[in-house]
Simulated scan of single mutants.
Amino acid sequence: MNDHDVSPETRAEITGAEHAVLRRIDPGARAMVVALGAVAAVAGVLLPWVQGAPGWQVLAGTVTAGFFPTLFAWTLTVFAIVVSAATLLTRLWVLAWLAALGCGIATVNGVWAIWSMQTGGVGAPGPGLVIAVIAAVVLTFTWAGGAFQRH
């Protein structure tokens, strides 16, 4: 079968299918790691962050936590939870990159949040904040590996 045996409509359909496949990723076993990382991020948001207040209160702004814990709460929620879930559902390559980059930014923000709490006299970070930072690190490397291995 050569190019002359295929109609232009069929050729266009094959080309469209080829482009659709190239825009997708197959997370494989990474999907389970991402799901567990996202669940850990949600658990981190539900556990105490600042002076016994949970991360969701920092996110909502009902607790004065400082700039970096609030920034981390937002970047964690958007990238580690929402974008990761959207990427698993759609399997779009561009969303995998967005999740990797966003979780990387969230990781840096989380480390800054812990640092600012320890040096600002607020006290030690709560266990939820530490769990959330670890979840962001795991998601960063998991999504980066998946984005680099696009099929």
Results as ranks from 00 to 15, higher is better:
residue 144 A to F: 15
residue 126 G to M: 03
residue 101 L to Y: 11
residue 3 D to R: 03
residue 59 L to S: 05
residue 122 V to G: 09
residue 44 G to E: 00
residue 44 G to K: 04
residue 34 V to D: 10
residue 90 T to N: 08
residue 36 L to M: 09
residue 102 G to N: 05
residue 21 V to P: 06
residue 26 D to W: 09
residue 31 A to N: 13
residue 137 V to K: 06
residue 118 Q to N: 12
residue 11 R to T: 12
residue 147 A to R: 09
residue 118 Q to D: 15
residue 103 C to K: 04
residue 3 D to K: 12
residue 126 G to W: 02
residue 15 T to A: 10
residue 7 S to L: 09
residue 19 H to Q: 13
residue 106 A to S: 14
residue 57 Q to F: 08
residue 76 L to D: 05
residue 86 A to N: 09
residue 9 E to L: 08
residue 90 T to W: 15
residue 61 G to R: 00
residue 2 N to W: 08
residue 66 G to C: 12
residue 137 V to H: 02
residue 26 D to S: 13
residue 75 T to F: 07
residue 32 M to K: 09
residue 24 R to S: 13
residue 118 Q to E: 10
residue 76 L to H: 06
residue 1 M to Y: 03
residue 119 T to S: 14
residue 2 N to T: 05
residue 110 G to R: 11
residue 56 W to A: 00
residue 128 G to W: 00
residue 106 A to K: 03
residue 62 T to K: 06
residue 58 V to M: 00
residue 70 T to G: 15
residue 113 A to Q: 02
residue 73 A to M: 03
residue 119 T to Y: 08
residue 44 G to Q: 01
residue 107 T to D: 12
residue 137 V to P: 03
residue 45 V to Q: 14
residue 10 T to Y: 06
residue 22 L to E: 11
residue 99 A to D: 07
residue 63 V to G: 10
residue 74 W to A: 04
residue 78 V to G: 05
residue 89 L to H: 11
residue 115 W to V: 15
residue 53 A to P: 02
residue 100 A to N: 14
residue 76 L to V: 13
residue 100 A to F: 10
residue 136 A to R: 00
residue 136 A to C: 05
residue 133 V to C: 07
residue 28 G to E: 15
residue 20 A to K: 01
residue 72 F to R: 03
residue 74 W to D: 12
residue 71 L to P: 00
residue 148 F to R: 12
residue 150 R to F: 12
residue 107 T to V: 04
residue 66 G to H: 06
residue 103 C to N: 10
residue 79 F to L: 13
residue 88 L to N: 10
residue 30 R to M: 11
residue 117 M to N: 07
residue 90 T to S: 11
residue 146 G to D: 04
residue 21 V to C: 13
residue 56 W to L: 08
residue 112 W to I: 15
residue 126 G to P: 01
residue 25 I to Y: 10
residue 61 G to I: 01
residue 64 T to H: 06
residue 6 V to M: 10
residue 90 T to Y: 14
residue 100 A to Y: 00
residue 113 A to R: 12
residue 142 T to A: 13
residue 21 V to G: 07
residue 44 G to P: 00
residue 61 G to C: 04
residue 103 C to G: 07
residue 41 A to G: 02
residue 85 A to C: 11
residue 132 A to I: 12
residue 43 A to P: 01
residue 47 L to D: 02
residue 61 G to Q: 04
residue 48 P to L: 01
residue 82 V to N: 06
residue 68 F to Q: 06
residue 106 A to F: 01
residue 36 L to Y: 06
residue 85 A to M: 05
residue 105 I to N: 08
residue 70 T to Y: 03
residue 39 V to K: 04
residue 85 A to T: 10
residue 9 E to Y: 05
residue 99 A to N: 13
residue 111 V to F: 09
residue 1 M to F: 05
residue 138 V to T: 12
residue 119 T to I: 07
residue 54 P to H: 04
residue 3 D to V: 06
residue 71 L to Q: 04
residue 71 L to C: 09
residue 65 A to S: 03
residue 8 P to L: 05
residue 11 R to M: 13
residue 41 A to D: 01
residue 117 M to W: 04
residue 139 L to A: 08
residue 35 A to G: 09
residue 120 G to T: 02
residue 49 W to Y: 07
